[in-house]
C-alpha cells in the first residue's frame, strides 16, 4: 500500500512547487478558490488542524481581507466613506481573494512540511548537491549534539559550584565552553572524515527511496497538469478594478481550470485509490 506521502520525495517536491507556485502567482478568483479547497482538503486528510493555530490563521485571514479597502480606493462601488476616503466593494473583494490565496499557499506549505520529513529533504538535496546535503545533515546532527553537550557542561559546572540559573555570566561561560568544545570536536570529525577518504572520489549516497511505477505516473500527471494549466492561464480573464468581473469563456480557460483542479486533487485521488484497494482486499479475505 502506498499513500501519497510514500511516493518518491523528488516527485513530492515537484508536485508541491507546481501546485503552490500556481496558487501564489495566479490571482484568478477561480484558481484561488480551487487551490484553497484542495489545500484545506489535504490538510484535513493529513492530521487535521490544531485549534489554536487555526484560530490564529483565521484571524490573520480576516485582518488581511479587511486591510486592502483601507489602502486601495480604486473601484466604482462605494460602500461608505471613511475619513474622506471611499471604501469600495472592489477593494474588499480583492482583499478577500488576496488573503484566500495567501491562506492556500500557507496550507500547501504546511502539508508540504508535514509530508517532507527531514530524511526526504536530505535525499532531494543530496541528489542536487552532495556537499550541501552533507552540511545539512551534519548541522542537524550538531543541533542535537550541542544540546546534549550543553547539558553535560552545565552539570559539571553545577558540581563545581560555579553555576547558578539566574546569573547571565554563568550562562555565557557555559556557551563559551560549548563553543570551544564544538570547534575542537569539529576539527576531529573533519580529520576523521579525511582519514576515511572523504573528498577523494565521487560521493555516493544511500537512499531508501526508489523510483517506482507509481512515482513515474504521479510525476508525469503533475507535469502534464501544470503545463496545461500554465498554457491556459493567458486565456483566463478577470479584473478586480474598476469593476469586479470574472469570465471563463474560451475552451483554453476551461481546460486550464480543469487541469488545475485535477492537479490539486491528485493527493486526495491517490489516497482514495489506495483506500478503495484496501477495502477490496479486505472484503476478499
Amino acid at each position: 500500500m502506498r499513500g501519497f506521502s510514500d511516493h518518491n520525495p523528488a516527485v513530492l517536491t515537484v508536485y508541491f512547487f507546481a501546485v503552490s507556485g500556481i496558487a501564489m502567482f495566479c490571482m484568478h478568483p477561480a484558481v484561488t478558490l480551487i487551490s484553497l479547497a484542495g489545500a484545506l482538503l489535504l490538510c484535513l486528510l493529513h492530521g487535521g488542524f490544531a485549534l489554536k493555530s487555526s484560530l490564529f490563521t483565521l484571524g490573520l485571514f480576516v485582518l488581511l481581507a479587511l486591510l486592502n479597502p483601507l489602502f486601495s480606493h480604486s473601484g466604482v462601488t462605494v460602500l461608505f466613506v471613511l475619513n474622506h476616503n471611499p471604501v469600495t466593494l472592489e477593494a474588499l473583494i480583492y482583499g478577500v481573494f488576496a488573503s484566500c490565496s495567501m491562506l492556500a499557499v500557507l496550507c500547501w506549505f504546511r502539508s508540504f512540511s508535514r509530508l517532507m520529513t527531514r530524511d526526504k529533504l536530505l535525499y532531494v538535496c543530496g541528489r542536487l548537491s552532495p556537499k550541501l546535503a552533507l552540511v545539512l545533515s551534519m548541522a542537524m546532527r550538531y543541533v542535537a549534539l550541542l544540546g546534549t553537550q550543553a547539558k553535560k557542561i552545565t552539570q559539571a559546572q553545577k558540581a563545581l559550584g560555579l553555576y547558578r540559573e539566574d546569573r547571565l555570566r554563568d550562562h555565557l561561560r557555559v556557551f563559551s565552553i560549548l563553543l570551544t568544545w564544538a570547534l575542537e570536536n569539529g576539527i576531529i570529525t573533519a580529520d576523521s572524515m579525511a582519514a576515511r577518504g572523504y573528498g577523494i572520489g565521487k560521493r555516493t549516497q544511500f537512499a531508501i527511496f526508489r523510483f517506482r511505477r507509481g512515482d513515474v505516473l504521479l510525476l508525469s500527471l503533475s507535469l502534464l497538469c501544470t503545463a496545461l494549466t500554465l498554457a491556459g492561464l493567458g486565456a483566463l480573464d478577470h479584473s478586480f478594478y474598476p469593476r469586479f468581473t470574472v469570465s471563463v469563456h474560451s475552451p483554453a480557460a476551461v481546460c486550464s481550470l480543469i487541469s488545475y483542479g485535477i492537479l490539486v486533487l491528485l493527493p486526495v485521488m491517490t489516497e482514495a485509490k489506495e483506500a478503495i484497494r484496501w477495502h477490496c482486499f479486505l472484503s476478499k479475505m
Binding site: 552540511v135 551534519m138 548541522a139 569539529g186 576539527i187 572524515m193 573528498g199
Partner: peptide, 25 residues
C-alpha cells in the same frame, strides 16, 4: 552552485555545519 564547485577543505565544511547548528539553536 558556486560553493558546490569550489574545493572547500573538509575542516571548513564541518565548521560551517557547526555554525549553522548554532544559528538554528
Amino acid at each position: 552552485a558556486g560553493i558546490e564547485r569550489k574545493k572547500t577543505g573538509t575542516r571548513r565544511l564541518v565548521l560551517t555545519a557547526i555554525m549553522t547548528a548554532l544559528c538554528i539553536a
